[in-house]
Design a protein around this nucleic acid. Sequence first.
DNA 1: CAGCAATCTTGAACATCGTTCAAGAAATAT
DNA 2: ATATTTCTTGAACGATGTTCAAGATTGCTG
Lengths: 202, 202
Amino acid sequence: MTKALDRREKQRADLVLSAERMIATRGLAGLKTRDLAREIGCANGAVYNLVADVDELVLRVGSRTLLRLDDALSAAVRAGNPSPKETLVRIAIAYCDFAAENLQLWRALFEHRMETEKALPDWSVDDQLQLFRHIYQPLAALLPKRDAEELGITARSLFSAVHGMVALGLEQRLVAVPLPALRKEIASLVRAMIDGLVAQAA
Amino acid sequence: MTKALDRREKQRADLVLSAERMIATRGLAGLKTRDLAREIGCANGAVYNLVADVDELVLRVGSRTLLRLDDALSAAVRAGNPSPKETLVRIAIAYCDFAAENLQLWRALFEHRMETEKALPDWSVDDQLQLFRHIYQPLAALLPKRDAEELGITARSLFSAVHGMVALGLEQRLVAVPLPALRKEIASLVRAMIDGLVAQAA
DNA sequence: CAGCAATCTTGAACATCGTTCAAGAAATAT
DNA sequence: ATATTTCTTGAACGATGTTCAAGATTGCTG
């Protein structure tokens, strides 16, 4: 009994890893159930014994990506002991670097939710909310007058603004921005946003 | 001779309009060639006499959306005669409002480019570059020391940041942000960015 | 260990797409 | 009026996500 379930569990893990590799190399659109089945050595129909549908699979891969992103941001904060302002700049740069290094997986995070209207499972929502905590703490130090709710909103806005710069910056279609230039732009605008916010608060 | 070409031209326009309606009501994923053919009264294969593929169709719809967006931003700038700073805030709010009012069509603008790897036709790229000019002028007034290239980069960064706030803010999945609250957040952060940029320049 | 029941796995089949193309219809030229 | 060119049609193709009845496997019991 447990033997069979263990095997299922292991095969499910294989499936998620295969899906992750496939998205990383061919993009979200390149994820095909038949190819996955071949890679993990089962019939294409068997994929649906491990996972309800591809949506769940993409969500599971997304969860892993968010976890690695969280690690990357944590590492950026941990290095050295800079001012709150420079910590926020580091987080922004780390976000940019992570997106650049994990381009397809990072894109899948945002491309996918657009397609489906189904509600996200709780574990997936939790993953996402965790990201803001990196921003919250340094922001609280910079804006001591703001209450928790205001800080939460501002943290989300800051994150969104940086996300936008990274998203459009890495979109090579329009104007190809070299990565170092993008990093500089982001650092500069993050500093401006913080300076502006602090000045407004005074 | 011209008779047939005229009819083609008219049917092509019908096709684009039908596609626009379909994207607006059902989203980009709800765009189906067979439904389009039925709506404009032709065989499904005939769609490919009017347009090379759905990509081109989506791009044509996108061009119309960008044109309307441009109009909306122009109108926002024209109203009253505010300071450069408040002009930039108005542009940001107008962008947010346009996205909210044209949610599916606006999303299609960014969802689509992610899927295809083909190079965009020139007319489509031109449309996009035009948007930055609204931001460029007030920014130049605020940052007289910067040269044209720096201003262009900063204008793009500002646009990207606002885009990010709108994109994640209208994504109802995570935390539902009421539109008025989103508008306030955007106005506040845009003012902060501008204040910060001006202070840095001094 | 044998036999039975429950469960899992399989791969063929289904529905839905975008896209193509040979054949027939229509328009134009002679 | 006829011939030639052009356009239109809708059936067919190849992919793809998903389902499901039938067969294989596993786990339990005497």
